[in-house]
C-alpha cells in the first residue's frame, strides 16, 4: 500500500543502539498501542454508524413497522421497499440517478477546471486589484442562497434555461464555488515557490507552470474538490427544486422528497430504501476517491 511510503521501515537504526530486550518490549508495546487504537476507532465508528445502520434496517422493514419497532435487529429481511421505491414515481429511479449523475459530473469537471485556474491566479500571480477581487470572491459565498435564487431564477427563466441542467452546471464552469478556489489557493500556497520559479527560469509560461508543475502537486486538493462537489451536488435539494420542474429531469433529492408528505403521510419504507440506494454511489466515490488522496503522496513524496 502506498500509505506506507510515509513511514518507511527503518531497520538500520535500531539494533545498534538498543538491547534486544528493550526492542522486544518496545514492539510489544507498539502492538498493544495498535490494538488499543483499533478498539477506540471501532467504538467511535459504531457511534458514528448507528443512525446509518438504523436507516438501513428501516429500509428492510414494512413501512407500518418502522416506527413501532425501534431495534436494529430484523426478524426477516423484506426487500419490497426497494422494489416499490424504485418504481413508485413517474419514472424508474434509475432516471433520477442518471440525472443526478449528469449534474454531478458536469459540476465536478467545472469546479476542477475553473477553480484551479482562478486559484493559480490568486495564489501565484501578482495583479492589480488582487486583494479586492479576493475579498469579493469571499463575500460571494457569504450571501445565503435563499435571497439570490429568485433573481437567478429570473435570469434563467428569461434565457429559457429553467428545467434544464444548465442553471445547475454553468455556475460551476464559471468558478462560482469560491469555497474551492480558496481551498486550492491555500494548498498552492503550501507548495514551495522555488519549484515554479525554477520552471520559470527554464522559460516556462504560466500555463505550463500551472499544468505541469503545480497541478500534479495539487492532486490531494483536486481530489478533495471532486469528492466534495460530488457529495454536495448529489444531496443539494433547494436549487434543484427551484430549477427543475419536469419529472423526467428530477434528480435524486427531489425524487426522495416525493415520498414525503406531512398531511397524508410519508411512505417511509420506500423513502429509506431509496435513500440507501442514493448513498451507495456517494459512499463508493468516497472509498475510491480517497485513494486519490493517498496517491497524492506518491507524487509529492517521491520528489
Amino acid at each position: 500500500m502506498t500509505t506506507e511510503l510515509r513511514t518507511p521501515p527503518r531497520v538500520s537504526e535500531g539494533p545498534s543502539r538498543r538491547s534486544d530486550r528493550a526492542l522486544r518490549r518496545a514492539s510489544g508495546e507498539a502492538r498493544g498501542r495498535r490494538l488499543l487504537r483499533h478498539v477506540l476507532l471501532i467504538l467511535a465508528a459504531m457511534v458514528m454508524l448507528y443512525p446509518v445502520l438504523w436507516m438501513v434496517a428501516a429500509s428492510l422493514r414494512p413501512t407500518d413497522e418502522i416506527f413501532r419497532d425501534p431495534s436494529l435487529l430484523l426478524d426477516d429481511i423484506d426487500l419490497s421497499n426497494y422494489a416499490d421505491g424504485w418504481s413508485a414515481l413517474s419514472h424508474p429511479f434509475s432516471v433520477y440517478l442518471l440525472n443526478s449523475m449528469i449534474v454531478v459530473i458536469g459540476s465536478i469537471l467545472g469546479n476542477l477546471v475553473s477553480c484551479s485556474l482562478a486559484a493559480y491566479a490568486f495564489a501565484r500571480l501578482d495583479f492589480r486589484g488582487k486583494r479586492v477581487w479576493f475579498a469579493i470572491m469571499l463575500v460571494s459565498i457569504m450571501l445565503p442562497v435563499h435571497v439570490v435564487i429568485v433573481p437567478q431564477y429570473f435570469i434563467y427563466s428569461e434565457l429559457h434555461w429553467v428545467n434544464t441542467f444548465i442553471p445547475l452546471i454553468l455556475p460551476k464552469l464559471l468558478a462560482t464555488d469560491a469555497f474551492f478556489i480558496f481551498l486550492m489557493v491555500q494548498f498552492i500556497r503550501g507548495i514551495p515557490r522555488q519549484l515554479d520559479e525554477a520552471a520559470r527560469i527554464d522559460g516556462c509560461g504560466h500555463l505550463r507552470i500551472f499544468a505541469q508543475v503545480l497541478l500534479p502537486l495539487m492532486v490531494p486538493a483536486l481530489a478533495t474538490t471532486a469528492i466534495f462537489t460530488f457529495i454536495w451536488v448529489w444531496s443539494d435539494f433547494f436549487t434543484q427544486l427551484i430549477f427543475l420542474t419536469k419529472p423526467e429531469k428530477y434528480t435524486v433529492p427531489l425524487a426522495i422528497r416525493a415520498f414525503m408528505d406531512v398531511s397524508s403521510g410519508t411512505n417511509w419504507g420506500p423513502m429509506f430504501a431509496m435513500s440507501v440506494v442514493s448513498l451507495i454511489p456517494v459512499f463508493l466515490v468516497f472509498l475510491l476517491g480517497q485513494r486519490f488522496l493517498v496517491r497524492g503522496i506518491a507524487t509529492t513524496g517521491g520528489k
Binding site: S90, I149, V150, Y153, F154, S157, V162, F237, F238, L241, I242, T245, K246, P247, L254, R257, A258, M260, D261, V262, S263
Partner: peptide
C-alpha cells in the same frame, strides 16, 4: 405534471410566480 413535497412546493410556486412562470 410537476410535483413536490409540501414545503418545497410553496417555495417553488412563489419563485415561479415572481418570474411570471
Amino acid at each position: 405534471p410537476t410535483y413536490s413535497d409540501y414545503s418545497g412546493y410553496w417555495d417553488k410556486l412563489a419563485t415561479q410566480t415572481a418570474a411570471d412562470d
